[in-house]
């Protein structure tokens, strides 16, 4: 009667479920998009280099830079704002409008802790998603370059290794962690504080996507001008 509730066993299940929904469930789309966008970046770069004085390895170099600095951390986060963000908003929002959140509170459960904390923990694995995006993006560039006849394997690899600045990696992963935080908070906020019915859940997901993207873009600008500017 006077014992503490065994919360950890419940929390563990929630965290595992959120890792599955938010991280594992996103790998497919992230891999697909990264590979093909990497390919397109490589093709575009080589098509724009008509001057024979520009070294051939520039294709690999430019692809690496755009993937690591912007595409993987920022644009994948925008896509995740659509996928993961609206999932979070609609799942928490549905719980709100169907009184599942009230049901938690009647049992004395802190609903914010119960719903949002596991999502934070799951999204600490977000850098893992972004690493996969970076690797596959660069690989996609290589494939498009070699198989499309835009350059040789050796030139591309030389470009990827050329003039590598470790701080760029740090910059990319600092951004990634900040975006993970944004992806967990803004969509949860819109879900938790929503009112109304099923129609409003849909609207809240859309609003949440818009604001998450806007905040990601603005914060990206801020971090970039602070760290690289």
């Amino acid at each position: 009667m006077f014992r503490k509730p065994t919360k950890w066993s419940v929390m563990k299940t929630l965290i595992l479920k959120d890792i599955d929904d938010l991280i594992i469930g996103s790998l497919g789309i992230v891999a697909f998009i990264s590979f093909f966008v990497g390919g397109v970046v490589a093709i575009q770069t080589s098509l724009n280099i008509s001057n024979p004085l520009i070294p051939k390895y520039l294709v690999g170099f430019a692809t690496r830079q755009s993937i690591i600095l912007e595409f993987a951390p920022t644009f994948i986060s925008i896509i995740m704002a659509g996928k993961v963000g609206s999932f979070i908003t609609s799942s928490i929002g549905t719980m709100r409008v169907t009184e599942q959140i009230d049901a938690l509170e009647v049992m004395g459960i802190n609903a914010i802790n119960y719903l949002v904390f596991p999502k934070f923990i799951a999204l600490t694995l977000y850098p893992f998603v972004i690493s996969i995006s970076m690797s596959l993006g660069i690989l996609g560039g290589l494939a498009a370059c070699v198989y499309g006849g835009y350059g040789t394997f050796e030139d591309y690899i030389e470009g990827v290794q050329n003039d590598f600045i470790p701080f760029h990696m740090a910059y990319a992963f600092i951004k990634t962690m900040v975006f993970a935080f944004i992806l967990a908070t803004i969509p949860s906020f819109y879900g938790y504080f929503m009112k109304g019915g099923a129609l409003e859940v849909g609207k809240a997901s859309t609003t949440s996507f818009v604001w998450t993207s806007v905040v990601v873009i603005l914060v990206n600008y801020l971090i970039t001008s602070l760290l690289l500017g």
Binding site: M1, F2, T98, E99, Q100, A103, V106, G108
Partner: peptide, 21 residues
């Protein structure tokens, strides 16, 4: 005491409010 009281309360919500996951 509040927490103990909560353990003694059962609630059936208007829309059932079952956890859908």
């Amino acid at each position: 005491e509040k927490r103990d009281l909560r353990a003694d309360i059962g609630m059936v919500f208007q829309g059932s409010a079952l956890f859908d996951s």
